[in-house]
Design a protein around this nucleic acid. Structure first.
Lengths: 222, 222
DNA sequence: CGGAACCGTGACAAATTCGTTACAGTTTCA
DNA sequence: TGAAACTGTAACGAATTTGTCACGGTTCCG
């Protein structure tokens, strides 16, 4: 959500959180653009009255960028004129909610919009610096260059990404990637991890070994 | 429990004590916030009618603070209106009990709520001043700087944190961290504690030796 | 006060973990 | 059918972790 009023941000993100959504916030257009490109959110709540770059401009830039052009944008504003609404929608807003609004109504609209998107456009693409992973396309690229992974390697990578930050023990990975049902003593996870790291090159630094525990995918490298 | 009526406080805490719960009390919002942050209770009983800062405000602040945001809050009040209830629930209350109430009913509700929390929503992130510990991410930071702990050190730290304030004997730690099944005479707990303290630096003051008994994690440093 | 128990500390060696190489069986595909 | 790719296992060794021992300072109690 993009809004320069902290109270509104807090109230709406709280309500969305209660409804089960993960949220992130930005207080101005520049931050919004940056985050949209790096996080690739499922939907953006965009206030029109922003400091410096107004919401319409932000919307325009989001729509122009291939990385963000498909993200649904719900515009929020106290502006009631028909011209503003139409302009916003023409510039690419998905929907329009006038302020003041009830958080419940907003949550309901967000829910509905995401349900509509759940089918063909569910989030399946992840970006981490030079690494792009598109799950539905079975596509991994590093700096735009395509990396060929085997089925098992791809499954391992995407599972770690989906559980980003959380350490997965070898037994967990055997259960969830290999679908083993009981504990066995094997080094096969280690071997696949090595192969995956080889193929990914330097971005394999995102694949972190926690000694004595397991592996995890790091969103950020320090 | 937070209430400005001493009779109510005494009655409820007595009944909760009889039911086996440890309790602590606050008579106003400021005290409640301070204690919630330092004690990190399993649940808060919060009266709406408080002097100075009312219960809704306290609830709001508790929910905003990462340290206290996950604590279940049961609201107590003589206010019967639906608006207040919805507002309270929207601000983050877990449940709502109208005054006057039977202490028995309250204890039962507390019990049920705590049982519901015992399973899938167990806490995995802890904050103590500069120290952050995130169990599922296997992440420990001090002043934002990541601290690398070995598997055993991490296990020892998190177990003491989960049993915060309670002294764990060496035998208990050997059983629960090392998974030894019978008593052995060893100094290995002491050694790991030393290593953990070394890595944590000044915040290791939270790791307290109780001579002749064992070790505990202190929520606050005096 | 002195002795015994306790615990922090430094040093060392054994144990464990995991990256790596190599190999062989299985599967896939032209 | 045969070659290539995939997958899992075994063995080796480097790095890290772990546990033990001995010493000495601190605390407690008779």
């Amino acid at each position: 959500m993009v809004d320069d009023e902290p109270d509104v941000l807090d109230l709406v993100t709280y309500n969305l959180g209660q409804a089960g959504f993960q949220t992130d916030t930005a207080v101005d257009g520049a931050e919004a653009l940056r985050k949209a490109r790096s996080i690739n959110p499922d939907l953006i709540l965009l206030d029109l009255m922003l400091p410096e770059m107004d919401g319409l401009e932000v919307c325009k830039l989001l729509r122009r960028d291939p990385k963000t052009s498909a993200i649904p944008i719900i515009m929020l504003t106290a502006r009631a004129s028909e011209i503003d609404r139409i302009l916003g929608l023409e510039l690419g807003a998905t929907d329009y909610v006038p302020k003041p609004f009830s958080p419940r109504e907003l949550v309901l609209r967000v829910k509905k919009r995401l349900e509509q998107n759940a089918g063909p456009q569910a989030k399946t693409a992840f970006i981490f610096g030079p690494l792009n992973v598109d799950v539905s396309r079975h596509l991994v690229t590093v700096k735009g260059k395509r990396i060929e992974l085997t089925a098992t390697e791809f499954k391992l990578l995407t599972l770690l990404i989906q559980r980003i930050g959380h350490v997965q023990s070898r037994d967990q990975l055997l259960r969830d990637v290999w679908e083993y049902e009981s504990h066995i003593d094997t080094r096969t996870v280690d071997t696949h991890m090595r192969r995956l790291r080889e193929k990914l090159g330097p971005v394999s630094k995102h694949l972190d070994t926690v000694r004595g525990v397991g592996y995890r995918f790091l969103a950020e490298l320090n």
